[in-house]
């Protein structure tokens, strides 16, 4: 479990509040998405969570241990892949990296060896375990970084942009791993990503930070439902749209967007289309995705 209470970080003599009274409770076994535009305070929050920055006020507890006062116990609860950094030693092999980071977490050599073998096999790197990481592809390097975060089998894992720069296949592998970790091993995962489809697919709950303050903290479904446009429908038809309808035709498929005041008015629209002899392919209520929600929240907060 991750507990963040009124976390605040102020910088410089001007006392700029990079993070302002942020509170979050992330239950064990959940995948939590932490989103924010650049400069919102996301990285500062993550650094405080990882024990790399000392909060000005407030508290972070990992598995019940205070990151500042009980640092050693808190770090034992925790593994991380930080964004924008190399995370692992390129001049060492995948195996040597795992052995090093495992022992930094206080594990004995035999314990690390066993776990490293499982991780490297699971990530498809066992055959390359003795090769230098510097010679690996970006995807393979990221897999090694993720393996180092998991080497001590921590109950809490922070993944900052874990799929950044990965190809489709590697992204799929990483996403499956994250889902499996939470579902089968009960690991608590804090995930940040600018790839919002990844967050939407994996996260049970999402928080959005802007200018140091939380602007949302809700289960993903509730967050999306809150932004559902109940009056907007998308109709796909065969052939061209009749006159008087807003439509876009791409690769032979015509899509029309229809706004109604009452959902029952959809029947009238369908009747009008039938009168024109139009063949319906599909009719769906428009569902917002996390990107729409994120942009709406961020823009809303900036206009507030």
């Amino acid at each position: 479990m991750i507990e963040i209470e009124a976390l605040t970080k102020m910088y410089g003599s001007a006392q700029v509040r990079a993070v302002d009274e942020v509170s979050l409770h992330i239950p064990a076994g959940s995948v939590f998405g932490f989103l924010g535009p650049n400069g919102a305070g996301k990285t500062t929050t993550i650094k405080m969570l990882a024990g790399l920055l000392t909060p000005t006020s407030g508290q972070v507890r990992l598995g019940g241990f205070d990151v500042v006062r009980q640092r050693s116990a808190a770090m034992a609860q925790f593994g991380a892949v930080l964004e924008g950094s190399r995370n692992v030693y390129w001049s060492l092999s995948a195996w040597q990296n795992l052995m090093y980071f495992g022992r930094l977490k206080g594990l004995r050599k035999a314990q690390v060896s066993e776990r490293a073998e499982d991780l490297l096999s699971g990530l498809g790197l066992w055959e390359r375990r003795d090769d230098k990481v510097g010679g690996f592809s970006r995807g393979m390097q990221q897999k090694v970084a993720i393996a180092t975060a998991l080497i001590a089998d921590p109950p809490i894992v922070l993944l900052d942009e874990p799929t950044l720069g990965l190809d489709v296949e590697a992204t799929r592998v990483v996403k499956d791993w994250i889902a499996e970790l939470a579902r089968e091993l009960g690991t608590t995962i804090l995930l940040t990503s600018h790839q919002l489809d990844v967050v939407q697919e994996l996260c049970d709950r999402v928080a959005v930070i802007r200018r140091g303050r939380l602007v949302a903290d809700l289960p993903t479904r509730e967050l999306l439902a809150g932004f559902r446009e109940r009056d907007k429908y998308e109709i796909r038809i065969e052939g061209a749209a009749p006159a008087g309808f807003d439509a876009v035709t791409r690769e032979g498929v015509t899509t029309m967007s229809v706004r109604v005041n009452d959902p029952r008015e959809v029947y009238d629209v369908v009747e009008r289309l039938r009168a024109h002899g139009v063949v319906l392919e599909s009719l769906t209520q428009v569902q917002p995705d996390l990107e729409d929600v994120f942009l709406a929240l961020v823009n809303e907060a900036s206009h507030a």
Partner: peptide
Amino acid sequence: RAGTFAQAQMTTAPPWLP
């Protein structure tokens, strides 16, 4: 510069030990 310095600080040991 590479980022491994920060990664290696997330240890159970006190910072002076590494």
